[in-house]
Nucleic acid binder design. Sequence first.
DNA 1: TTGTATGCGTTATCAT
DNA 2: ATGATAACGCATACAA
Lengths: 374, 374
Amino acid sequence: MQRLAYETMRTTKDAPAPTIAEHKAAIQRENRRVTSYDVALVAGVSQSAVSRCFKPGASVSKHTYARVMKAADGLEYIPNAAARSLITRRSNMVAVIISNAANLFYPEALSELSKHVARGGKRVLLFTLHKESELDLVLNDVWQYQVDGVIAAATLSEAQVAEFERRRVPLVIFNRNLRGQAANTVACDQYEAGRALVSRLAAAGHRVFGMIDGAQDNAVASERRRGACERLAELGLPEAVIVRGNFDYASGKLGLREIIARSGGRVPDAVICGSDVMAIGCLDCARHELGLAVPAQLSVAGFDAVEASNWLSYNLTTLRHPMQQMTAAAAELLYSLIDNPGGAAEKRMFAPQFVEGATARLVALPPAAVSLAA
Amino acid sequence: MQRLAYETMRTTKDAPAPTIAEHKAAIQRENRRVTSYDVALVAGVSQSAVSRCFKPGASVSKHTYARVMKAADGLEYIPNAAARSLITRRSNMVAVIISNAANLFYPEALSELSKHVARGGKRVLLFTLHKESELDLVLNDVWQYQVDGVIAAATLSEAQVAEFERRRVPLVIFNRNLRGQAANTVACDQYEAGRALVSRLAAAGHRVFGMIDGAQDNAVASERRRGACERLAELGLPEAVIVRGNFDYASGKLGLREIIARSGGRVPDAVICGSDVMAIGCLDCARHELGLAVPAQLSVAGFDAVEASNWLSYNLTTLRHPMQQMTAAAAELLYSLIDNPGGAAEKRMFAPQFVEGATARLVALPPAAVSLAA
DNA sequence: TTGTATGCGTTATCAT
DNA sequence: ATGATAACGCATACAA
């Protein structure tokens, strides 16, 4: 300790320790932060003793601890996390990379993640993506902050995943299933969700399908579409008319009109939408603009089971992600990677839950009705 | 530089500079991070030269810059933000403290804040509150991380605001109007919003009001209530029947039933709800459960203008916060405080915008109808 | 249990 | 323009 530049440090061992109030005023005068040296000086102990008092489980005598804590409280001393992380190599920060779309679908996801991360004593440093293409720039920033781990609700390239390995930064991919990549993943099986939905609808006799897809580069939506399309093919049903949406209400409304237009004016048996919000748009368009009875004339289904899907005016047929479980699992997996690096990649895949709702007909029509429909 | 412990550093001035690949392998072997010393060694310059190359506007020759950047790219060197912040006293992090409820009302608020904060080169460190009472614990954590500033979408006590001053941490209070506190604030005038809504409804002849209030400790909702009640009193209208809600759909449904029960079975002229989601619950209850025509028999109004309020099935009468402007203003204000500390407190108050919608009758009834209603 | 000495990786100051 | 050196505030190995 040779900080003799500071007036407050100009104290030899023999000089009396300053009082808390005196020293605090001096620090204020010098316009600097309160450090562990200040606490040590006031408490009459060494700086390392102060440090130990703030480390859980360190060996400090009751007497020393009490003196230090009294001084620390009086000076309003708080350890500096930046300095600490420099030496411990732990920043106690976890980066969460989240694309805008993901955030809007699951308003609770971020808050839940934050809660679970906080439980382990770390905090969330937030990186939002407004286009998936910004990811490389954002990652560059992530490295700087020396975060202890990353939860990414975005689609990473293999090169990007590889950089995490090289830099030894634990990574959990959230709500994206990167097929064929050996990355730690917590996700919902979107492919299976697409298949399951088609199976249920087909079993009830739907034959002509329309689909309102998600935004172009969205991996979640394309997985669902793939599942749905493959299941349709397996069942020998005609290919679905697929139009592009961007997950919002307006694109659900437009999507239905476009499907009908592209089908020569015919209304399909069922429309599968890439999100609940689009499904709600589709539903409102069908009922209020086109005067179609749902589900009598048209079945509509969504994905996500957002809160609104459950409102009386909609009561949507949809598939629920077990978000609470997924966020808890993501935090847990990340912590285990941080504590124990270098294990094999683990994929925790959750099954989507079918929500019956009332916007899709889920029982087969009686024979008479079938002949009428045909 | 006396890091002679490292094999890779065991190089005197006369020894040849190692190649990028050699050095990188050595670093890997020693299982340590790439530092500016490594880059300096490979590039054949001093460590300070490397540092300058990463500081915009520093004076470095083209030749040196090129050599350094080549080495840095090859080694995948990224400056360590923790070390940097230790000396610059800038962490390039902004804490955002947000209570759960706030997050759920405005799914875009956090993402927008993050975007605006990122524009200035900083990132958001997220602190979520699950109860407002957790705030003291959370603040303790905030100090540790040495954030450059704080945006708090939560209600702070005077003592808490004072601690920000003492610690000289710039603070912007978001979407809360702390009356009488000299704190920097970006908010929407909730009191005025409450008044405005009552004024509009009263002008259209509504006389008997019910209110579904927000959660107990929520300052935003109580401001609105205060504005609404005071305006009612001014107009000489009867006191509103007020029931407590917790901002969610279910409490909107229950709230309407409770209001009617507490009014001896009479349906009020209008129900003012503390949030759109509650208003939607109230609306669904009125229409689907009680068979009331809205707005013919009952007017329903909300607050917030969330996306769903605009859906065809609802088309809610509500009040919009200019969220985009508010988030931009909050980030801007915080940056100005960081760059120029110690100015007088500034309050940026935005006016809520009335959204007519179709769930409240906004024109006076014709005389004949009035006599019928009376 | 306590204190001394050192290093974490950077920026800033000051010669050159 | 460049290099040597001193902070920044803390944790830790080691000696006492």
